[in-house]
């Protein structure tokens, strides 16, 4: 199909067809990443600016490698939360970057809504690398890519997301994406970590983990932030791990062929034990590998590289 977007702000705005297009294109880039010479000239002469206003290692590295392997020039800027809030507003900063005429801005930002605003106001491509508790669309796409690779399909898969659904942009993007492609989605969490209106999301809601462990094809364990404990969303890590952590006992209950995913970084011993994270069911590192290919696909599609160059 034709790709007509210059930006990727959210999964909510994508059609199922667009999602599947990204996954198809990703597969071809994955092959390039495994070559001896991991570089194609597709985006030669294009400039990609990575603006990271929140700490990130893997997402930033993944985007940077993706751009470099397509021969784009990259500049990565990491700005700490406290310094950018003083003086210059984020729109000032964005307009200054824009004045240097980049072809693409990849933005990670602690508050929801900025990528949408940049996409509206800037003429270059804008790719959302995570905004507040809103969306993290490339993470969802790489997750779907990894699931499809493992199972050969997405429709009808039972995917269970476990943990902090309320504050997680990864969960939001994944719920939208999985529903669009026809997967069955369950969320598992205490009520304090679910949005108050979860009943309107069209997902199965579970407060008990064990029944879901036995039935799901994919267990996606979400990172638990320590600050949620301070907000009284759960009493302590021990209790959380007992009710919602993935340990050996639960791994042994999983269906044959079922897999474990985690968007990282992993809190070992809290939402997942090392046996589960490092065991044979874990496809956590496949997710990371696919992340580069998916981001290459998006840069390629949004920046309008031609099919021949690929």
């Amino acid at each position: 199909m034709e790709w007509s977007r210059k930006d990727l702000v959210s999964i909510a705005e994508l059609s199922a067809e667009e999602i599947l297009t990204v996954l198809d294109v990703s597969a071809t880039f994955k092959e390039i990443n495994r070559r001896e010479i991991k570089k194609v000239p597709t985006l030669r002469g294009k400039t990609v600016v990575l603006l990271f206003y929140e700490p990130s290692t893997r997402t930033r590295l993944s985007f940077e490698l993706a751009a470099k392997r397509l021969s784009a020039d990259t500049v990565a800027l990491s700005v700490s939360g406290s310094s950018f809030l003083k003086g210059e507003t984020i729109m000032d900063a964005a307009m200054n970057v824009m004045a240097m005429i980049p072809d693409c801005i990849v933005i990670r930002y602690p508050y929801a809504g900025l990528p949408a605003r940049l996409a509206r106001e800037l003429s270059c491509s804008v790719i959302n690398a995570g905004d507040g508790a809103h969306e993290h669309p490339t993470q969802a796409l790489l997750d779907l890519c990894s699931m499809r690779e493992r199972f050969g399909r997405l429709a009808g898969l039972h995917v269970a997301m476990v943990g902090d659904i309320a504050h997680s942009r990864v969960a939001r993007s994944n719920v939208y994406a999985l529903k669009k492609v026809g997967a069955r989605v369950s969320v598992v969490a205490p009520k304090t970590l679910l949005p108050q209106d979860i009943s309107t999301w069209g997902v199965e809601v579970w407060h008990e983990f064990d029944p879901v462990v036995k039935d799901a094809d994919v267990l996606m364990m979400l990172r638990v932030q320590k600050e949620r404990m301070d907000e009284q969303c759960f009493p302590d890590e021990r209790e959380y791990a007992h009710f919602y952590g993935l340990d050996r006992r639960r791994v042994d209950m999983m269906k044959p062929g079922a897999v474990i995913m985690h968007p990282g970084p992993v809190n070992r011993g809290v939402e997942i034990t090392h046996e589960a994270a490092d065991g044979s069911r874990s496809i956590i590192l496949n997710q990371v590998e696919n992340g580069v290919a998916v981001r290459m696909a998006l840069l390629y599609l949004c920046l309008g590289g031609s099919a021949d160059d690929r």
Partner: peptide
């Protein structure tokens, strides 16, 4: 306002 829209937008809600 806290509700389905705040959840979709990823903005903290006021119940």
């Amino acid at each position: 306002n806290e509700g389905p829209l705040s959840a979709r937008l990823g903005l903290p809600g006021i119940p």
